[in-house]
Every structure is written in C-alpha cells, then in structure tokens.
Design a protein around this nucleic acid. Structure first.
Length: 535
RNA sequence: GGGCCUGUAGCUCAGUCAGGUAGAGCGUCGGACUUUUAAUCCGAUGGUCGCGGGUUCGAACCCCGUCAGGCCCGCCA
C-alpha cells in the first residue's frame, strides 16, 4: 500500500471527517523543501478522500511569526523590523529595502511578497488548499478563547514544556508574547495578566497592555501550533523531522493541545529535500531552488512523482542534472504500464505485488488532477533533449517525431514539455553528458583506437561529405555510403563518424546535427583527424 | 548526556509493522536490428541485508549491544 493510503487508513479508523493541515512561515523565498510539506499533506488528503472520508485540506500561512534577523537578501533598513510580524511589515523591493509605497497603498506585506509565487506554483502543481492567514486569525479573535485557556493555565503549560523538552524556561516566562511599544515581539517582559489584558514592559522603557483577543501579540510557537490544531480541529498533520524529535515541538504540542481541550492530530514526519551535492536546502545558504524554478524545468506531475514515490521518512536528493532525466523517464515507463492488469497475475509473490501496488499508488498521487490517469507522452526525456538540441524550431521537432511514427498528434502536454526542455537546456542545470558537442579539435586518444579499415573509411567519409548535398537526408545517406564504397558494414562508418566528430563511440543521429552546422568546419575537423592518424 | 530517523546489488530504493528460498528500476556486459531515436527488443551480470551477539526449526525483519551519517532537545519553523 502506498504511504498516503496507509495514513488514510489510520485516519479512517478514527473518524469519517478530517482536517489535514500544513503550515509554512513566509520568512524568505520558498524552495522545493516547502513543496514536500504541502505535497505530503495534499497526498494524504487525496488518499483520505479516495477512501471515502470527508476531508478539509488547509494551509496555514504563519504570517504572525516574527522576522528573525536581517537576512542576506534584505537591506539594512530591515534592522528596525527584526522581531516584527511578517504579515505586518513591508515587502522588500529588488534592492532589498522596504517597499513602503505598496505597503501603505495596497497593504502589500512581507508575507504576501514571498507567498504569492508559491501559491502560483501550487496551482500549477494541482494543490488547492483552504488558506488560513495566521496573523489575520489572531486579529479577528479566532485565537481568543484558546489564548485565554493558555494564559489561565500558564503553570501547567510551563510544566509540560519543561518536563518534555527537558529545558528550563526563564523566570517571567508567559504563554503570550505581547507586541512591544514599537510593534515587535522581542525585548518585552510580561508583568501581569488579567483577561483579556497581558501587561508588559519593554526595553525601551515603555509599558502597556496587550489584548489577547485582538491579536496584540501571539502565542509562542510551542503553544501557537497546538492552539491552531484546536481551533481549526486539525486531525492530521505532516511536519518536518525537526519537529518530530523527542522533546521537539510535536511532543510538547500533543500534550498542550489536550490542556486546550482537543485531541492531538495524527502525525507524519518527513525528511528534508536537499539539492544534489549541495546539502540541505537553506534560504540563508543560498543553495535553494524555488518551486517556480523547479517547475520551469520539470513538469508538475514529475515533481509530484518525486515526492510520491519516496516514503516520507526518506531524504530526497533533488538532482537537476542526470537524475532528472532518470526520473522523467521513470515517469514515462510507469505511465505506460497497466497496473490493474499486472495484478491479475496469480503467480505474483507478495513482494512483487507490493511493488506493483506502490508504483500504482505513486502514479495516482503524481497526477495533477486527482483521479485522472497519467498519460505517457511516448517521447522520453532523453529523446526530447536530443531533438530540442538539434532542431531550432518546435515544428521541426514534431515533424521528426511524426515521421518516425512515434507520435500521432501534438498534445498541449507535449508542447509544454518541449518548452520546459528548451529552458532546461539553456540553464546551468542541464548535464554536460546530455549536451551534444561537435568537436573543434580531433580527439587523439579515440582516433588511435581505429583499425586500418576504419581509417580508410574516415578518408572515404571525408570525400563523401565534401560532395554530397548539405541537408539531413543526403548526409544521412552519405555516412553509410562511405563504408559501402569500401564493401564494409555501414555500422563501422558510424563508429568512425562518432570518433572523429564527437570523440565518442556512439551518439545521437548525426545527420540532422551536421545539417545544422557549417560544412567547411566539419571538413576542417575531418582533415585534422586524417592528419592525426597519418602521423 | 537524552531521543528520533537512516544504513539492503555499482546507483536509487522496495521488502522490516503481521519472521518462511534476497526483489525492482537504472547502470554494466552480451546479442538482435545490413542508415542510429546515445532509440527499441532479447538475454545475462550483480548483495556477508553496516557490524557483533541473542531468541527461533527458520531472522534483512523480533530483542540486546555496537559503528557510521543526519536531525532534535536554543520562543527555530
């Protein structure tokens, strides 16, 4: 059974209606690590719906969280906002400094700025959660009742956190962080509490009172999370492994939520996604790839497959080079299979059966539209990469595919793939071993491996190419002809041609590539090859 | 110090919850295709299941220990 179905089954045992929740703090650019958070939730929700449960899938935008520090991508003017809530401060302009104008005129915040492209990516990838803005929820009083319980039971909560996380909370700790005189959550001390007011003093010498029913502050993270479970009625949440450790925020949260009068949600811990060869995704380290960037390279269903096929507790290495080719080709193979039919085979071992079911489950989760069957495009990534490099116009690509019988009609899906492929080829991510490179200098090493016959073919090849018409079909005929003239197998002509022009033993179909190149350059290269051999 | 996760074929991983002959894909190698889609098809190759004990008729799987990597126990999501 697919991992999402396993989770759905666990939910089904508890109740018929569920709220599956996800949440992200919009503190900087979103990256594909965040995509795992939301896709994991989406897949559980989808599996639960398929199992006949009624499911509400929510995405909580943690806009009430404070800005931690002036990140590298921010200008020095952000110093004044450290400790201020992300949904209450202006967005950075391209120079990194605050965009006051949009903030004042449109209420465009820091949180909006980073969230917007992520929401676009979600739409493209087929994830449509109900959005909940955390700061807005505080301000409109939806946390009021729970905040009151938390403040009333400050001692119990304090005890729970100290016991479970085995750390001591400072004197004067209180389960409510009031906003200080400058609108930040830092540098402030609680001096008293009488519902609904929390009294405070800050380091600027000011004092005041924070109304917990009006969002004049927030619950600290370890209480904020369970409070959200309680007011939204969350029954299932997937979260990163950082929260999952013993003593971490889930273990304190599951106890605190009971103090708040609600049962803890079904947990599912997931591992990080890292960029191959660059370690964990981290906004501050600058080694991120955003969901938007990823989607320009990879079709959404393939990105979904990456998450769907990996069990949540497995770390994913996102490889934008050869790994992407392998992944995309795996998608094609899986899409072409008929799992239902395969499962009718009586002789399958339990192990083989599980493997087929998991593959089927992963593909079900990979489709952008739930319930739709994934369609094989009949063109592998490898092949498309080749065509995209040799044909400058899209129409030539389609002509070639249709001529070879690989393809009948050009679907929008295929056009879309080609567009992404062209973008990928231009990007730094495209792997060198996939790049088609015609040599400019002879590759001496490989030329030395050619035997006597093959050397004669090289001469013959040069003569033929000198005189033939310079188009793909004429060149295509000339290469084998150069061997036939010497009563040799056409095959050996290709071997020679690859050795001379690409320095490899085999390669892509040469004729269309040569046709796009300058004949004189090719002839010069062949000439140089002949000279190397004759030495 | 305490805890969680991971370790199985060259690579990516399934299989561990319910112990019963070590699995898949990729790769590699060989063959077929008398113009090659680095294509396709066919075949082969491949593992002391991190290591050491224990329980059992039987252990990748359960138990104990141990090694290696990652993460958490900082109002950090």
């Amino acid at each position: 059974m697919h991992w999402a179905d396993v989770a759905a089954q666990a939910l089904a045992h508890k109740s018929d209606t569920h709220v599956v929740s996800t949440g992200i703090t919009p503190s900087g650019e979103f990256h594909i690590g965040h995509l795992r958070e939301i896709l994991t939730g989406d897949m559980i929700a989808r599996a639960a719906k398929d199992a006949g449960l009624s499911v509400d899938f929510v995405f909580i935008i943690d806009s009430a969280d404070p800005l931690r520090k002036v990140y590298d991508f921010l200008g020095p003017e952000y110093e004044q906002f450290v400790g201020h809530q992300l949904g209450a401060i202006p967005a950075p302009k391209s120079d990194g400094n605050p965009d006051w104008e949009r903030f004042q005129n449109e209420g465009w915040t820091y949180a909006n700025h980073f969230l917007e492209p992520f929401l676009k990516a979600l739409e493209e990838i087929g994830v449509r959660p109900r959005l909940i803005d955390n700061l807005e929820s505080y301000r409109s009083g939806r946390f009021a009742e729970l905040s009151k319980i938390a403040c009333d039971r400050a001692d119990d909560i304090r005890e729970a956190i100290e016991r479970i996380s085995s750390r001591e909370l400072p004197d004067g700790w209180f389960p409510w962080s009031p906003l200080n005189s400058r609108g930040g959550l830092d540098k402030v001390r609680v001096t008293g509490y009488e519902f609904p007011l929390v009294h405070w003093e800050d380091e600027y010498g000011e004092s005041g009172s924070s109304d917990i029913t009006k969002g004049e502050g927030k619950l600290p993270w370890r209480i904020d999370w369970p409070a959200k479970w309680a007011w939204i009625g969350v029954t299932c949440e997937a979260f990163g492994k950082d929260h999952g450790a013993a003593g971490g925020s889930y273990s304190t949260g599951r106890e605190i939520v009971q103090l708040l009068g609600h049962e803890p949600p079904h947990p599912l811990v997931y591992e990080w996604i890292s960029l191959k060869g660059q370690g964990a995704m981290s906004s501050s380290a600058g080694n991120t790839i955003g969901p938007i960037e990823a989607l320009r390279l990879v079709p959404p269903e393939i990105l979904r497959l990456l998450v769907a096929k990996s069990k949540p507790n497995k770390a994913i290495e996102f490889d934008t080079g050869m790994g992407l080719v392998t992944l995309a080709d795996e998608f094609e193979r899986l899409a072409a299979r008929d799992f239902q039919h395969e499962l009718t085979n009586e002789e399958l071992s339990r192990r083989q059966k599980v493997q087929i079911e998991d593959a089927a489950g992963a593909m079900k989760m990979a489709t952008v539209v739930s319930g739709q069957k994934a369609e094989a495009t009949a063109v592998t990534f490898r092949h498309l990469a080749l065509l995209a490099q040799t044909k400058k116009n899209d129409s030539d690509v389609w002509t070639s595919l249709q001529a070879s019988g690989a393809l009948e009609e050009i679907t929008p899906q295929l056009q879309d793939r080609l567009t992404r492929m062209r973008y990928w080829i231009q990007s730094e991510h495209f792997p060198n071993e996939m790049r088609i490179d015609i040599l400019t200098e002879p590759n001496t090493t490989i030329l030395e491996t050619l035997d006597e016959v093959e050397r004669r073919i090289l001469n013959s090849l040069m003569m033929t190419l000198k005189t033939c018409e310079w188009n793909a079909s004429a060149i295509g005929a000339s290469i084998p002809q150069s061997a036939k003239d010497l009563d040799e197998s056409p095959r050996s002509a290709f071997k020679v041609a690859y050795a001379a022009m690409m320095g490899t033993e085999k390669g892509p179909r040469l004729a269309p590539i040569l046709a796009e190149m300058d004949r004189e350059e090719i002839l010069r290269l062949l000439e140089a090859c002949v000279q190397v051999i004759e030495k």
